[in-house]
């Protein structure tokens, strides 16, 4: 079981790299969906079959793997954009930064005083790396849709961390996080629609003009 979850976590990292290096929004969303699908397997793999984990897996799969990607696809279809053209930081530099951040999180987690059963597992480093990837995505991209993707990756990172605590974490908290996310994406989609109508562009830079 442990090796399977480790391989899945490595896949998550590779998908992170892909997300940082790809400019096509459609393939990014598909990748996010795949990542979500992989993550939804983790509760069952990490903690065995139980009502709790099964429920969590199902909800995560429905939300992360299906509902949110569907919403995002709809959003990009509405606003007719297919790729992020001018990121603030280029793709290759973000990729390099992403790898360095990943390397950093692996090395850092080796120094954390974790309990023995977690010290060998990949959950902590991969969670940290995914968080960093989400941050990088948020920092380096302009379009509202890629910002939303950044939040999603970020949430995936939190989800991986949460895996370590699933036994301790009440079901409702977990569900609440997922729900928050769904609402967040809804808001983002609506906001995107509005930005697009107001400014006829999708760049979040225009939001700067709202200050004062």
């Amino acid at each position: 079981m442990d090796t399977i979850s480790n391989i899945l976590l490595l896949l998550v990292i590779l998908l992170n790299f892909f997300l940082l290096g790809s400019s096509r929004l459609a393939s990014c969303i598909r990748t996010i969906a795949l990542q979500g699908g992989i993550l939804s397997l983790l509760p069952v793999l990490a903690h065995g079959f139980s009502g709790h984990t099964l429920f969590l897996s199902t909800v995560a799969f429905l939300l992360k793997g299906i509902a949110i990607p569907y919403l995002l696809f709809r959003a990009i279809r509405q606003v007719h954009i297919r790729r992020e053209i001018e990121p603030l930081i280029g793709y290759v530099p973000t990729l390099i930064l992403g790898t360095l951040a990943t390397a950093g999180s692996f090395i850092f987690s080796g120094r954390l005083p974790l309990i023995p059963e977690h010290s060998q597992s990949l959950f902590v480093p991969v969670g940290l790396a995914t968080l960093a990837t989400g941050f990088l995505m948020l920092i380096s991209r302009r379009k509202a849709i890629t910002q939303a993707l950044g939040y999603l990756i970020f949430e995936n990172g939190i989800f991986i961390f949460g895996m370590l605590l699933t036994e301790a974490m009440p079901l409702m908290v977990e569900a609440g996080v997922l729900l928050d996310l769904l609402v967040g994406v809804f808001v983002m989609a609506i906001l995107m629609h509005q930005i697009n109508r107001e400014f006829s562009t999708m760049n979040t830079d225009n939001l700067t003009s709202l200050k004062e």
Binding site: L10, L14, F17, G21, V92, G98, T102, F106, I107, S109
Partner: peptide
């Protein structure tokens, strides 16, 4: 092509990091 090559370098670097920890 350069992007893919950099990607390959980073991938190999990452595989090294997996061993380094």
């Amino acid at each position: 092509i350069p992007q893919l090559l950099v990607g390959a370098s980073l991938l190999s670097f990452f595989s090294l990091i997996l061993l380094l920890r």
